[in-house]
Design a protein around this nucleic acid. Structure first.
Length: 691
DNA sequence: CAAACCCCGGCTTT
DNA sequence: AAAGCCGGGGTTTGTA
């Protein structure tokens, strides 16, 4: 749910990188300790699935405590120092809370041999340290309580046996008794903050609210704490609307600072992605415009960034500066994948393209800033818009850099709902089609990858664009509009080549590899059973080309393959594709019509298309071939009802329009079947009307 | 080209 | 907190 969507929504973002790392480690951990589920940075959210995550954390902590308290004080000592003394230090730690723990534990767990010698050789040292540590612990704020609370918590999170609900509640109550007065002293500590997390999870609304209340005033601190941020995220997750509002209000005005903060940025991103309405998102982004908007929530409400920058050039200056500042800082921190940042970037880009001439140097800077991490943008709606715009704005040299970045994750780029739009924009604006083809085409059009691409409604679009341009059947009006906007933008500065020339160049480079890939694909038949794929294939066939090999060899081969699978054979059998798969008949019809005929919806008749380029093997030629097959085998009787009947009608219409001799032959044959034509079947009825 | 269908986010209910 | 309902947008499918 929540956490899932989070994962999906920023699949490639930095935020996931630590998780991945974590998972790897956790896996290792699993093997050693039979943990049921790996911990991850997202853990606080995943806990909503009851046991599994809790298990893993618990066990880790058991280990940590066991190891550290009995044998290796210094590990914990170090950790505690970290979070107690200096947050700054903690910040610099790449690893989040869980990871820290893992790591420390692992070192010892993985190499038990090193433990013993160590211990012996420094026994005294250790006991001294132990004493020091426990003294220090007790001297800390609420030190004594912390120790007691932790003991209780140990019981609460044991997994074997899992505490019953009653036990859990009882323990929670006890912990609550001890902790409710000292919540503030707990939440920043790496272990104690987990106690509170657990408390949040298992407690009633009432108690949660109390926790939130006692934390009032420290949410910023919490968000910037390496350990506190997990608690905060958890409170957001389980908290009531009101407590969320409390948090949002408290963080309001500090978003810019938070975004520049290693830990804080995650909290803000979570807030933005998971817990904000569209309106709240607007408001959050407005904070990036500048202090005025950060202080006054409603300042600029209902205004777009363009409205505001048009008010005065000072405002424009300021807003551009502020947006850029935040974006730059975050990108340099490695948060390029954050969705909230993409939204901010989109605002910035909107300002940039408002006047591309006077913003030229800002545009150059911005492209330079994002060039290296460009592929981090393409997976979100907003990021994709930014990427497309920048591709359009970039000069030839810059585009080269962008292409290079995009190449790295090209599979994801093509398949992703938003990524494929970026790729199409690239196709549409980059003049250097050699570079484009080399970077993307050559790998897309392989027997391994192509089948997968054409059967997905998103990943087939770049291919369909090359074949057909921005055909309204494949590009929804808004997508199409956006793409045309990028194209226009590109022609304002950089792109020179004629649009059709560019696409034609790509087409001529691609078409032969596409055919080859399809013809040598392993399971061709299964492609014909997939709506998206068979449609793509018929589009391919109906695309004219000057490529002789395609015209003479490959296309006929492909048509024959389809013919064999969809027309030959006993059409009444279950396995026959024409019978089995509803949309196969449509594809056959589109081959019967080819490029030169189409079904006119007004007159409900097939009509001829003027000035259309005839595709060899389609149209009349295909219709005649079909008629031959059906008549030759005395199968006509099987073809006069259902889907096959519609196919026949279509063939008949085309043949008649073309004055083909076969039209009469087919008609005569059908007349002989007249008694079998039924008015109850729609296709059959049509045939009847025909003769 | 229109009807049917599906998916998603927001809202209400239990 | 989870499940279920509803409306809207967009996509798919069927058509004569």
């Amino acid at each position: 749910m929540g956490n899932k969507s989070k994962g999906v929504k920023r699949p490639n973002s930095e935020s996931l990188k630590p998780v991945d790392k974590n998972l790897k480690k956790a896996k290792y951990n699993n093997r050693k300790q039979n943990l049921p589920s790996p911990p991850s940075e997202d853990e606080p959210l995943q806990e909503s699935e009851e046991s599994s995550d809790e298990l893993s954390i618990s066990e880790e902590d058991d280990d940590l405590d066991e190891v550290s308290e009995k044998e290796e004080e210094d590990e914990l000592d170090e950790l505690d120092d970290l979070d107690d003394l200096d947050e700054e230090v903690a910040e610099t730690e790449e690893a989040p809370q869980e990871e820290d723990d893992d790591e420390e534990v692992f070192v010892e767990e993985d190499s038990p041999k090193t433990v013993d010698p160590n211990k012996k050789s420094s026994k005294e040292q250790h006991s001294e340290q132990r004493k020091l540590l426990s003294d220090r612990k007790l001297q800390r704020k609420s030190g004594a309580q912390v120790q007691d609370i932790k003991k209780l918590w140990e019981k609460l999170r044991v997994t074997k046996p899992t505490p019953s609900k009653q036990q859990r509640d009882k323990l929670c109550d006890e912990i609550w008794d001890l902790s409710h007065d000292v919540i503030n002293d707990l939440v920043l500590k790496h272990d104690a903050s987990r106690v509170v997390q657990t408390l949040i999870k298992y407690s009633s609304k009432d108690r949660r609210d109390k926790i939130v209340n006692s934390l009032k005033g420290s949410f910023y601190q919490l968000a910037t704490s390496a350990y506190g941020k997990y608690l905060l995220i958890k409170i957001l997750h389980y908290g009531s609307k009101e407590s969320r509002a409390v948090i949002v209000n408290e963080l309001h005005g500090k978003l810019r600072k938070l975004m520049r903060h290693k830990e804080g940025a995650y909290v803000v991103e979570d807030l933005f992605v998971l817990y904000s309405s569209a309106e709240q998102k607007q408001q959050m982004i407005r904070e990036f415009w500048g202090s005025e908007y950060a202080v006054f929530k409603d300042s600029g409400k209902d205004k777009t960034v363009l409205d505001v920058i048009h008010e005065s050039s000072e405002k424009k200056q300021l807003i551009m500066q502020n947006l850029y500042g935040t974006i730059k800082a975050s990108v340099e921190k490695g948060s390029t994948g954050f969705q909230i940042l993409h939204a901010a970037m989109r605002e910035y880009v909107t300002v940039l393209i408002d006047d591309i001439d006077s913003n030229d140097s800002a545009i150059r800077d911005f492209i330079d800033l994002l060039s290296e991490q460009f592929s981090e943008l393409v997976h979100t709606q907003e990021g994709s818009e930014v990427a497309c715009t920048l591709l359009a704005l970039a000069n030839a040299k810059e585009r080269k850099g962008l292409v290079k970045s995009l190449k790295v994750h090209k599979n994801e780029l093509i398949k992703n709902e938003y990524g494929n739009v970026v790729l199409i924009t690239l196709f549409m604006v980059v003049d250097d089609t050699v570079l484009t083809y080399k970077s993307f085409g050559s790998e897309m059009f392989t027997p391994e990858l192509l089948p997968e691409l054409i059967e997905n409604k998103f990943s087939r679009r770049p291919i369909l664009y090359i074949l057909k341009g921005l055909d309204g059947r494949y590009f929804a009006p808004n997508v199409k509009k956006a793409l045309i906007r990028y194209e226009k933008l590109a022609y304002q500065k950089t792109s020179k080549k004629d649009k059709n020339t560019r696409r034609q160049e790509l087409l001529e480079k691609s078409i032969e590899p596409i055919y080859k890939a399809l013809l040598s694909t392993e399971d061709f038949e299964s492609l014909l059973t997939k709506n998206m794929a068979i449609q793509s294939i018929t589009e391919l066939i109906n695309t004219p080309t000057t490529n002789e090999k395609v015209n003479k060899t490959y296309r006929p081969q492909l048509i024959q393959k389809i013919f064999d699978k969809t027309i030959k054979g006993d059409v009444l059998e279950d396995y026959h594709l024409l019978n089995k798969i509803p949309f196969v008949s449509r594809s056959i019809k589109s081959l019967i019509q080819g490029n030169t005929y189409k079904f006119d919806n007004d007159s409900k008749k097939v009509i001829e298309i003027e000035d259309a380029e005839l595709i060899p093997g389609t149209g009349v030629e295909f219709a005649e071939k079909l008629v031959d097959e059906v008549i030759d085998n005395v199968k006509l009787n099987d073809w006069i009802i259902g889907q096959p009947a519609f196919v026949l009608v279509n063939a008949l219409e085309v043949l008649q329009l073309a004055d083909s001799k076969k039209a009469k032959i087919l008609k005569d044959q059908l007349k002989k079947q007249k008694k079998n034509l039924s008015k109850d079947d729609k296709g059959s009825k049509l045939l009847l009307e025909f003769i």
